[in-house]
Design a protein around this nucleic acid. Structure first.
Lengths: 259, 259
DNA sequence: CCCGGTCTGCTCGCTAGCGCACACTGGCAG
DNA sequence: CTGCCAGTGTGCGCTAGCGAGCAGACCGGG
C-alpha cells in the first residue's frame, strides 16, 4: 500500500469513512473513480496511483492561492473544487469547477509554476494528490496521460468560453439554476451545502440577487433550501429554468470525453 | 523555395506587396515574424516553415466555421484574427484574438478536429498556414513546438478568464478603450479598420452603446474615427480610460512569453 | 448630379441588477 | 434561558445598458 506513505502530516486513509476507503481499494485494483485516471491504460494508471496520496478535502479549504507555487496537483474523487479569479476590488468570480471528471493543476501541465486563480474546495470529500515533480515526470513519460489532459483542456476552454457568454447575457435566475445543476452533478447528490452569499460571490452578483432568484425557484418547488443546505427537488424543472448553457456544457462534455 | 509549392489555388507570394515578400524572405533566413515560430530552434523552425504556405488574409474572411473540420492552422504575421463564439440567438461574442504572438487552430493541438468558434479575419495581412496532417506530425516530432504552444495555451486561458470578468463587471466605455488598444497592438499601427457595428457585436452590446462610448473617447481627443477608420491619438490617455484588464493582459503576456 | 447604401448620432421608455440599510429567524454556545 | 450570529427576506432609489426606431452625413457608382 505505497499510497499511504508520505501522508504522515495529513488526514490519513485510516481516518476516512468506510465508503471512501473502499473506493481507494477499488482504485488500487484499477477502477479509479476519477474519469481522467480511469481512461488511462492499466500500467500507466498503476504507476501514477503509486505516486498519489489520498486526502480528505474540507469545505472551503484553499488549495491554491494566486501566484503561490503549486505544490500538488489533485484528482478529485468525491470532492469538487471551485476556481476563483480575483477581480481586483476584493470581489471574486468563478471561472471553473473541477470534479471527478478532471484534475486541478493545469498550469503545471502547461509549464507554469503558479496560477492566477484561487482554488477552493466547494464540495468536501476525497481526492488523490500528487507532488509537482513526480507529476511532471509522469507527464513526460505517459503519452496517454498527456492525451487525456489535452482533451480535458479542450473541455475546460470550451466551458470557459460558454461561461463568459452566460455571465454576460443571461438572467440571474437562469444562471443560478445552471449553477445549482452543475453543483448537483459534481456532488452526485440531491442535497449539498452552499449559502446565498457564497453562491453570489461565485456568480459575481449581490447576495440579494441570489436570494430573489433562489426564492423564486423555491416557490416553484424546483428546489428547497434552508440555512446553507440546498436540495434539488425537480431536476427537470430546474433544467427548464436554467439557460441553455447547461445543456451546451453537458453536450460538450459528452462529445469530448464521452465514449 | 519550397514554401511556394501548393499555393496554386491561392493568392501567391508573387502577388504580395514588397514589404510582405521581404518578410517571407527574412523568415526563410530564420527570423520569423511570428513570435511562436521565432521561439523555436532553427532546425525545427526551418522544417515547419517548409510545410507552411504564405497566404494573404482579407478583412472579414472566415477561416473557421463552427463544427466544420479544420483544414489548416495559421500563424499570423501581419494579419490578426478574431475568435467568435455564437450565442444561439444569432448574436455573437468575441472570446479571443490571435495575432503574430500565437496561432490559430489550438483545437487541433488538443486532439479535436473541429472548434465551436468562428474565426474571422479582423486585420488583413499575411499569415503562414499549414495543413492539419503535417501539423499534427510536426507536433509529435518537435518538443519545442509543443512547449511553445503550451505556453501560448496558458496565455489564452488566462486572457479568456480575464475577458469573462471584464465583460461582466466593467463599464462599456472602458471595455471599448481596452478593445481598441488590443487591436492597435495586433495591427501595429495607429489607424485600423472597424465600424461601431462590428465592434459592438464583438463586445456583445448594442451598436448605440459603442457609438456613445466611442463618441466620448473622441471628445476627449483620445481617438478619432470616421466611417470605419479608427485612429488612436493618445495611447496613454486611452490606457487610462481602459479598465485594468488591458494592463493585466499585457503583464501576463510578458510573464508567460517574455523570456 | 443624384441615388442608394453605409456609417454615425440621437431619442424614449424600460428593466435587471446595483448599493445600502434594516428586520426577522432559527440554532448553537455560554 | 439568554444572547449571539449566520443565513435569509425586503424595501428604496439609482443607473447602465436594452430595444426599437428614425435622422442626418458621407461616399461611391451610375
Amino acid at each position: 500500500m505505497s499510497m499511504l506513505n508520505g501522508a504522515a502530516n495529513n488526514r490519513l486513509l485510516a481516518a476516512l469513512p468506510n465508503s471512501d476507503r473502499q473506493r481507494i481499494v477499488s482504485m488500487l485494483n484499477g477502477a479509479a473513480d476519477n474519469r481522467l485516471l480511469a481512461a488511462l491504460p492499466n500500467s500507466d494508471r498503476r504507476r501514477i496511483l503509486a505516486s498519489c496520496e489520498p486526502v480528505e478535502l474540507a469545505l472551503a479549504e484553499e488549495l491554491y492561492a494566486p501566484w503561490v507555487p503549486l505544490r500538488f496537483i489533485y484528482f478529485p474523487i468525491s470532492s469538487f473544487i471551485s476556481l476563483i479569479m480575483p477581480t481586483g476590488d476584493s470581489g471574486a468570480f468563478e471561472v471553473g469547477m473541477v470534479g471527478n471528471e478532471g484534475m486541478l493543476g493545469i498550469s503545471l501541465v502547461l509549464g507554469a509554476e503558479v496560477s492566477s486563480q484561487r482554488a477552493v474546495v466547494q464540495g468536501a470529500g476525497l481526492a488523490l494528490r500528487m507532488e509537482a515533480a513526480p507529476f511532471r515526470r509522469e507527464l513526460r513519460r505517459s503519452k496517454a496521460l498527456r492525451g487525456e489532459i489535452d482533451r480535458y483542456l479542450q473541455l475546460r476552454m470550451g466551458q470557459l468560453a460558454q461561461a463568459t457568454i452566460c455571465a454576460h447575457f443571461h438572467l440571474l435566475e437562469a444562471r443560478v439554476a445552471r449553477r445549482l445543476l452543475m453543483t448537483q452533478d459534481r456532488s452526485r447528490a440531491n442535497t449539498f451545502r452552499g449559502t446565498h452569499e457564497v453562491l453570489a460571490s461565485k456568480l459575481g452578483v449581490r447576495r440579494v440577487g441570489v436570494t430573489e432568484a433562489a426564492s423564486s425557484l423555491q416557490q416553484r418547488r424546483l428546489i428547497h433550501y434552508s440555512r446553507g443546505d440546498i436540495t434539488v427537488l425537480d431536476r427537470r424543472g430546474l433544467m427548464a429554468a436554467a439557460c441553455k448553457c447547461y445543456k451546451a456544457d453537458r453536450e460538450s462534455y459528452d462529445r469530448i470525453l464521452g465514449q
